[in-house]
Amino acid sequence: MNKTILITGASAGIGKAAAQYFAAKSWNVIATMRSPEKETELTTLNNVFVTRLDVQEKESMQPVIAEGIKRFGKIDVLLNNAGYGLFGPFELATDAQIKQQFDVNVFGVMNLTKAILPHFRANKAGTVINVSSIGGRITYPIVSMYHATKFAVEGFSESLAYELAALNIKVKLVEPGAIATGFDTAANFTGNPEITDYDAFVQGFLNLWGSKTMERTTATQVAEVIYEAATDGTSRLRYLAGQDAKAFMQVRMSGEEGYHAYMQEHWVPKNV
């Protein structure tokens, strides 16, 4: 029997690429998204079930899992991919913006994982793959809330991996660097017209970001890494995706002093 993966945030970017990649590998795919009525490509694939799931709506999770099991027999892998980006100075973030950042990136991951674990325990097998980010290992200026959520996902996943291993349930982290999906340009920004003290710093960082000639990883390349994590049969926890992510981790592992000096030199605006 073909294996089945449940994917969140499958309407675009990494999630859609993963749905297409796994389907091409003869997996059954439960492709979830907030507006399935808008999807026109995944619905043409026989082994893909497109359905609605908003990870901020906890009550919708069990029905989706039950329907997926009814269609395909069981679920082998959960891919927590849905994500939201909030950029800008922390002081200018509203309570609503901060709540949404954590509701999607952290509590959505936790709630859906908790919802599927009874099924995995009954099967005595299963894999949870959480799409983190190199931003869960390193930090940029003006991205504190996004980093906070990805650091939380990293810690949650690492600890969870220990407690589920004895049940033959694996937990994996995929950590992409900059990706060619427009995620950063589509990010939401904090702001307050009455506070202008951060303006020069923010613009300085955006100028730095725009000046970097980073080779962005494609969504399909990330999907290939996700497939490796799902199928390699190991208990490996972390999978870097993208040459920039690997380069950043080399700097990070060089030691705290060298890492912070590198970030100050290359990513913190000067003379602002």
Rank of each mutant, 00 (worst) to 15 (best):
A229K: 04
A180V: 04
G85C: 15
M110S: 05
R137Y: 14
I142H: 13
G85A: 15
E59T: 13
T8A: 05
A115E: 07
D244E: 15
N271V: 15
S26V: 00
G108K: 05
F49N: 01
I75Y: 06
A10H: 02
Q56G: 13
V29Q: 01
A245Q: 12
M249E: 14
I69K: 12
L45A: 00
I226Q: 02
L79G: 03
S11R: 05
S159N: 13
R121Y: 08
K74M: 07
F248K: 03
Y227C: 08
N111D: 14
I134P: 05
T231S: 12
S133C: 07
V202W: 12
Q243F: 07
A166F: 04
I195C: 08
P118T: 08
A10M: 06
A247Y: 10
E257Y: 08
I98C: 11
A229R: 05
Y262N: 10
K74N: 13
H260A: 01
T196R: 12
F102Q: 08
A93I: 10
Q100K: 15
A115N: 04
G126N: 09
T181K: 10
D197F: 07
G85Q: 12
Y198M: 10
E57G: 00
M33L: 13
L53C: 06
V48T: 03
P63K: 08
A247V: 07
E158F: 10
D199P: 01
